[in-house]
Every structure is written in C-alpha cells, then in structure tokens.
C-alpha cells in the first residue's frame, strides 16, 4: 500500500480535502507540519517516515521551497519538485520560461534598479503593471498609470529595500474583459477551470473576485499543457487573460494551487485527481 504525506504550515480546507481523499482511496496518509520538522546534512531517508511521495502544501513559498530541497536531498519524491516550485514561485523565472517555450504571455520588462525601471517605462510608455517577483493573492500588484504613481512607489521601495525590491518586474496591461481564467492542471489533465470576475483591476479570489465555472476548451487545454511543460509540470494553477487581439495569454503559474472554491462546483474531483497523480508519479 502506498503511503502519502501532506506537508503543511497552515491547514486550510485544501489540505483537509487532500487528506480525506487520500484516506478514501485507501492510502496510508500523514499530515506533517513543516514548522516542527528538522533536517540536517547528516539526515537520512530512514530517519523519517514520509512514505512514497510527499505533497508539499505550505502557504509560505520559501518555507515550502526549502523544505522540498531537504526532501529531495533525502531522495524523497515531492510534488511539486524543487525546480518547478522555484520556476513558479518567481514571476520573472516563470515569464522567461513561458516566453522561451513560446507560450503566449504578456510582454514583461525586467530591470534591476529604479533608474533602469524608469527607462523601461519611458521607452515602453504607460500604463504598465508592477508586480513583486515573489508574492501572491495580488499583493503589491499595482497599475502604473502616471509618473506620480511611479515616483511614490519607487520611493517606498527605496525605503523598504527588501532583496526583491531591487528587481523591477513591469508587465504590459493586457486589454481584457473584467475577468481572468484560472485552470488547474494535474500532470497533462486540465481538471477544472473558472473565470474570476471583478469590477476592479485585480481578479484574485482572495480579494473577493467572483468565481464562475468555465468550460475547458481545446485552446485552454493546449495552452495549460504547454505552460505546465514550460515550468516543469506537476500540479499547477495556470492563470490566463483574454487579450483582445492575441486571445489567451498565460500570466502566472501557481505552485501550491488553492482550489477550495473550484472544488465545490467542478465536475471532477480535484483533490482525488491530485492524490492519484502523486501516487502514480512514483509508481512509474
């Protein structure tokens, strides 16, 4: 019998659903708190009981990423892998990989000082959207529509001066309807998709956007598979926008995708599909 571990740092509805489905499928299932687990350079796989495969579900990106590194050091399979988590957790790496693999994605401009970012803005023109390279739920995603906004925001960055504040990720403001699309892909299977509707600029469910089930078209399916392959594959949330001219463009790929809302309306059992994928991935 396969044993599966779910690594968490905060138990949300998603982690409870995964645990329930794994148990229903008959797998020996354990939930492990990343905050109380210790590793060292001397650690061995036999020191732990993580089972055959681990689903990494930490809400803190860096905690999950580094925990995954420790698990892979021990030779324990993790969904998603360190490489995939790293590719998706950093928006700049995601954009580069999407573009490199010819996945339609918004034009995005990178610079490594406020001065160079201003030059990008002068050259490309307003508006652009500034996003932190690490972050989620729409935090600190700001449309830059004029010089005053830029001056204020860049000044704040100078004072906060976190390591990520020196990386300026500026993205074109895509002309789209007041919604975007989120699809969940597990391996090569797009299991569910939804529109996220908002009257405001941001369409994050965490910020109150309304969710509506979306039919999975061939275009959505193809794009999700290509985006997933571009970052390394696994269990992912693909965010897309409907550009007026280009059609669908992928703007983000999420590594520890939330699915509480979508699971209620989806025709497929999302957590069950995720558990089966994880177990089957180590049987191959």
């Amino acid at each position: 019998m396969s044993k599966i571990s779910i690594v968490f740092d905060r138990v949300r509805a998603e982690e409870k659903m995964l645990q329930k489905e794994a148990e229903s499928l008959g797998y020996d299932t354990t939930s492990i708190d990343a905050k109380t687990t210790r590793f060292s350079t001397e650690s061995k796989k036999s020191d732990y009981d993580f089972g055959n495969v681990v689903l990494e579900r930490c809400v803190s990106y860096y905690r999950g990423l580094h925990f995954t590194a420790c698990l892979e050091f021990l030779g324990i399979p993790v969904i998603n892998t360190f490489e995939v988590a790293n590719n998706c957790g950093n928006k700049m790496l995601t954009s580069l990989l999407l573009s490199k693999n010819k996945v339609p994605t918004p034009k995005t401009y990178f610079s490594f000082s406020a001065e160079a970012a201003r030059e990008n803005l002068d050259k490309v023109g307003y508006p652009l959207v500034i996003k932190p390279i690490v972050g989620s739920w729409g935090r600190s995603v700001v449309p830059l529509k004029d010089k005053d906004t830029v001056d204020a925001l860049f000044e704040i960055r100078e004072y906060t001066d976190g390591p990520h504040d020196r990386i300026f990720y500026l993205q074109e403001m895509v002309k789209r309807p007041p919604r975007d699309l989120r699809a969940i892909i597990v391996g090569d299977e797009v299991v569910a998709a939804m529109y996220r509707k908002s009257s405001g600029f941001k369409t994050n469910i965490a910020l109150g956007a309304d969710a509506e089930l979306c039919k999975i078209t061939k275009e959505i399916e193809d794009l999700c598979v290509r985006a997933s392959k571009a970052v390394g594959g696994g269990i992912l949330g693909i965010d897309m926008m409907e550009d007026e001219k280009r059609g669908l463009v992928v703007h983000e790929v999420n590594n520890t995708v939330e699915f509480k809302g979508l699971a209620k309306v989806a025709t497929k059992n999302i957590p069950k599909t995720m558990v089966e994928f994880a177990v089957n991935s180590v049987r191959k």
Binding site: V59, Y61, G237
Partner: peptide, 11 residues
C-alpha cells in the same frame, strides 16, 4: 499565536 501573513504567502 498564529503566524501573520508573510510577504511570500500564497499559491
């Protein structure tokens, strides 16, 4: 005490 939402929290 629950941890407060961190800069790196999310999906």
């Amino acid at each position: 005490q629950a941890e407060t939402v961190g800069e790196d929290w999310g999906e």
